[in-house]
């Protein structure tokens, strides 16, 4: 260390600097702790509604109707989930949750796959070909961005009922399949495929469908995965459209089913509503968490 009178000031300066650094360090650590605390609180508040429903779904109806709001698990998990899955709410809807889950699953899958299929085809046509009416076709698709299904709900309902498609999967799914978002995303991506690749394919004598199958589709898999997550969630979460189209239990989706299960509240099987809610949010949440990487990428890119 330092010796002699001359060095005292230097030693003091170093000590001061070190103290300052320690203070800064401590204050940074304090800030980090505070950050963690606020984030944990945020996450907890965020999860609270789910936690209550998750715990409530393991209690009997009397506990919940008394308003005890249990925050710890109870003994009725198996009974409640089997009852909901196999029979549904006996006092209100009587449609088993398994049937509604199947309807939701079919709907979400067909919407996601259908949207991806028809938009990759139309984006391919718009980007790789030149033909009369190309811009018109592009704008016709593009402008549908401005007409979400909620806005044109009744006229569309009338068209679907004129076509005799009420209470059918076709009526439920096909009107939701056309989407400008997916077409735009594919178009943007196709524009980044180098011209040399097309050139090479043409020299090799590959036709447009061959090029599509062997080059474009394999290159697009990441985009497809990203879109799949977003569109599956979109399809699963539809509410207003299925509410209008399904008037019988045959094609009823789970999201509609829960709200119908609550009914007038007088004799609601709250424990089954809770179990059904957990079942209803499981598939889309699982897909988002499992495919998080593609999902975040896709979300941020489709909206640009």
């Amino acid at each position: 260390m330092m010796h002699g009178p001359v060095s005292t000031t230097a030693a003091e300066a170093i000590a001061r600097a070190e103290a300052a650094a320690t203070r800064a360090d401590a204050s940074r650590r304090r800030a980090d702790w505070l950050t963690h605390a606020i984030l944990i609180l945020g996450v907890a508040l965020f999860a609270l509604p789910i936690w209550i429903v998750l715990m409530g779904s393991t209690h009997d109806v009397a506990t919940i109707s008394r308003g005890e709001v249990p925050l710890l698990p109870g003994p009725y998990a198996v009974e409640n989930y089997t009852a909901a899955w196999a029979e549904g709410s006996a006092r209100t809807t009587r449609v088993p949750v398994s049937a509604m889950m199947l309807n939701s699953f079919v709907m979400a899958m067909l919407i996601a796959v259908g949207k991806i299929a028809i938009s990759i085809l139309s984006a391919y046509a718009v980007v790789f070909f030149s033909f009369p009416g190309r811009m018109l076709a592009f704008w016709a698709i593009f402008i549908t961005l401005m007409l979400p299904v909620e806005v044109r709900i009744f006229p569309t309902f009338k068209v679907v009922s004129d076509l005799g498609m009420i209470n059918t999967y076709t009526g439920l799914i096909v009107p939701l399949i056309a989407s400008a978002t997916a077409t735009l995303l594919f178009r943007q991506f196709f524009l980044t495929i180098p011209d040399e690749l097309v050139e090479a394919a043409k020299i090799d004598g590959a036709g447009p469908m061959r090029f599509f199958k062997d080059v474009v589709v394999p290159l697009s898999t990441t985009n497809m995965a990203a879109l799949f997550v977003i569109l599956f969630v979109y399809g699963w979460n539809q509410y207003l459209w299925p509410l209008l189209i399904t008037t019988t239990g045959d094609v009823e989706t789970i999201v509609i089913g829960i709200v119908r299960m609550i009914g007038s509240e007088a004799d609601t099987d709250w424990h089954l509503v809770m179990a059904t809610t957990v079942l209803a949010l499981l598939p889309p949440v699982a897909i988002v968490i499992l495919m998080q990487r593609w999902f975040v990428k896709g979300l941020v890119e489709t909206e640009k």
């Binding site: 996450v43 429903v53 979460n237 509410y239 709200v259 809610t277 209803a280 949440v285 988002v288 968490i289």
Partner: peptide, 17 residues
């Protein structure tokens, strides 16, 4: 991860929660 999953919950299901 803990903050993004409510994105997947339907508005009607959020209401029930």
């Amino acid at each position: 991860t803990l903050l993004i999953w409510p994105y997947a919950i339907a508005p009607a299901v959020a209401a029930v929660l």
